[in-house]
Design a protein around this nucleic acid. Structure first.
Lengths: 291, 291
DNA sequence: AATTTTGTGGAGTATTTTCTTCACTAGCCC
DNA sequence: GGGCTAGTGAAGAAAATACTCCACAAAATT
C-alpha cells in the first residue's frame, strides 16, 4: 500500500477517487467544492452539507489513510495555513498541474472570454421569447443542423423530445429537406444551427420555411450566418478557440440554458412525461439503478 | 450596547481590544496572528497555542457577542469561505441586461464552477497520454456514446474523422455492438461517453473491448460511470446545472481541447487531409465562399 | 430467481470538546 | 497589613462530536 504521507487531502481524494463508493464520491465532491473550507466544520456539519451520513465521513477519512476525521481536519488546517501565508499562490491557472501554455489552460482562457462576450451581448428578451415559443404546444418544433452543428442539433432534439410533444429532427441529408417542409405549418418553429463554413442549403431551408410562416430561431457564430436575415431570433455565440477548429461550447451553453428555461415553463407536462419515461426505462432495464 | 452583527471577528477583536484583560489580549493577539487559521482548532488547541486557559477563550467569545466559541468559529469559517472562493473575480452578472436570477446568469455561475472544478482535478499527464494515443495512426479509434452523450460522441467523431484515418463511429443501437467489436484489434482505442443514468450496455461493450486488449478512454461525470473501472484513462467532468438536466458543457470542452491537441500532434497529415477536404467541398459547392 | 457481496445510514456508545463553577492569586485602596 | 475587587485556570458537568455496530438495501454474482 502506498503511503499517503505528505499529500494534501485534495490529492488523496483525487488519487483514491476511483476506489470511492457512491456516497463517498458525493462527499468528496462536496469537500472539493469550496476546498478546503467545506471540510472544516464538525463531522456532523460536513456530513449534512454533503447529504451523506456521519459514518460515511468517518469511513472516508480512514480510507484516505487518516486516523479519523479530526486528523483529516488538522491536515486541512495546516494546508490552509500554508496557502494563506502565501498569497501569491492564487489560482493563475485552471489546470494546476499543467503549465500555462498547456492547451487545457489556453482553451480555458478562450472559453472564458467567449462566455463573457457571448453573454454580454445576448438579449434576454429574445431568450425569453424563444423559450416561450418553444413552450407553446400549439407550435411544432423542427430542428436542423449542419455538418459540424448536427451534433448540437441532435443534443437539443434529444432533450426537447423528452420535454414536449411535437418535436422533429430533420435528417442531415439535405435532399430530403423539402419533405420535412411539407409537414411544417404556420406558427411552427424551425430551430437551425449554422456556424462558419455556412451552408447554402440551410438558407434555402430557411426560405422555404419562412414562406410557410414558420418562425426561425437560429444558433450561429459571432459573425452570423447568412440565414440570420430570415431569422426571427438569432443567438450569436463566440466560437474562438486556440485550435484549427471553432469552439461550440457557448452554443451548447445557450442550448442547455434554453432547455432549462423551457423545462421550467412546461414543468407540469414535462414532469408527467419524465415519469412515464422512467417507467419505460424500468421496463427495459436500460439503465442502472444508481444515483 | 452596539450590535456586532456583520462585523468580522478581527473587527470585533480590535473594537473591543481596550476592554480586554491581560490573558484575553494575549489570546486576541495569537488569533490575529495567522488570522483566521489560528482560530480554527478546538478550543483546547486555541487556548494552548495562545498560552491561556480554555475558560479564557470561551469568555472572550462571549465578550465579542458570540453565543460561544463554536459560534465564533463558524463566523471565521464563513469569512474564510468568502475570501478563498474568489480566485477568479466573480462576475456580478454575466448577461448584464438580465437579472441575477435569470437562468442565463445562474447557468453561467454553474458552468464557471464546473469549469474550475473539472480543470482542477484533471490530470494533464492523462490528457497528454490520451492525445498521444489518438495521434497514433497504428491504432484505430472507435467512438461510442449513450442516450444523451451520443451527440457528444458524434461531435468528437465528426472532427476526428477529418483529422485522421481509421476512426469508426459505433451506432447507437447496442444490439449491433458486437459486430463492431469484431473489427477491433489489440492496441485500438475505444472512446466511450457515459454520464449518469449510466448505461448497462456500455459496461458490456467495455468488457468486450478490454478482452481484445483495446485501450479504453472514458468521458464521464464527477461520480464516475461503472465503466470507469475498465478504463485506462477517464475524464471526470462536473455536470452540475440549475436544471432538471445535467450540463455537458465541460465534456464538450475537454473533447474540443483534445481535438486541438491531436490536431497539433498530427498536423503534417491533417493539413493534407484538410486541403483535400476543401477541394471536395469546392466540387460539391456545399459551402459558401465566405470568410 | 437465489445468494453473496458491498455499501449505507440509524442508533447507541465512547470520546472529545465546551462551558460553568469555584477556589486561588494578584493588584489595589484604605 | 487587611479587606476588597477583578482576573485566572483547575476541575468537573454538560453538550457536542466522532466513532462503532448492526440491520437493511442495493448491486453483483451465481
Amino acid at each position: 500500500m502506498e503511503t499517503a504521507q505528505g499529500l494534501t487531502v485534495a490529492e488523496r481524494i483525487r488519487g483514491k477517487f476511483e476506489r470511492l463508493t457512491r456516497a463517498e464520491r458525493q462527499l468528496a465532491n462536496a469537500m472539493l467544492a469550496n476546498y478546503p473550507v467545506s471540510g472544516l466544520g464538525s463531522i456532523t456539519a460536513v456530513a449534512a452539507a454533503s447529504g451523506v451520513s456521519t459514518p460515511t465521513v468517518a469511513r472516508m477519512a480512514k480510507k484516505l489513510d487518516f486516523g479519523g476525521f479530526p486528523e483529516l481536519q488538522a491536515q486541512l488546517r495546516s494546508e490552509l495555513k500554508a496557502t494563506i501565508s502565501n498569497p501569491i499562490a492564487k489560482h493563475d491557472r485552471w489546470a494546476e498541474n499543467a503549465p500555462d501554455t498547456h492547451i487545457l489552460n489556453r482553451f480555458a482562457d478562450a472559453v472564458m472570454e467567449n462566455m463573457r462576450q457571448t453573454l454580454a451581448q445576448i438579449n434576454p428578451d429574445a431568450f425569453n421569447a424563444v423559450a416561450a415559443l418553444l413552450s407553446d404546444h400549439d407550435r411544432s418544433v423542427h430542428v436542423v443542423g449542419g455538418r459540424i452543428t448536427r451534433s448540437l442539433a441532435d443534443y437539443f432534439f434529444t432533450h426537447m423530445q423528452v420535454i414536449r410533444n411535437g418535436v422533429t429532427q430533420i435528417a442531415s441529408n439535405s435532399n430530403t429537406w423539402p419533405h420535412y417542409v411539407l409537414n411544417m405549418k404556420a406558427g411552427d418553429v424551425l430551430v437551425a444551427f449554422d456556424i462558419r463554413r455556412y451552408e447554402h442549403d440551410i438558407v434555402r431551408l430557411a426560405e422555404m420555411a419562412r414562406s410557410k410562416d414558420v418562425t426561425l430561431v437560429l444558433f450561429t457564430d459571432q459573425w452570423g450566418s447568412p440565414t440570420a436575415k430570415h431569422a426571427t431570433h438569432s443567438f450569436h455565440s463566440r466560437i474562438e478557440a486556440p485550435s484549427a477548429w471553432d469552439s461550440s461550447v457557448m452554443i451548447l451553453f445557450i442550448v442547455e440554458a434554453l432547455i432549462a428555461a423551457v423545462q421550467t415553463a412546461t414543468w407540469e407536462e414535462t414532469r408527467d412525461r419524465m415519469n412515464a419515461l422512467e417507467a419505460l426505462f424500468d421496463r427495459t432495464k436500460l439503465f442502472r439503478k444508481f444515483i
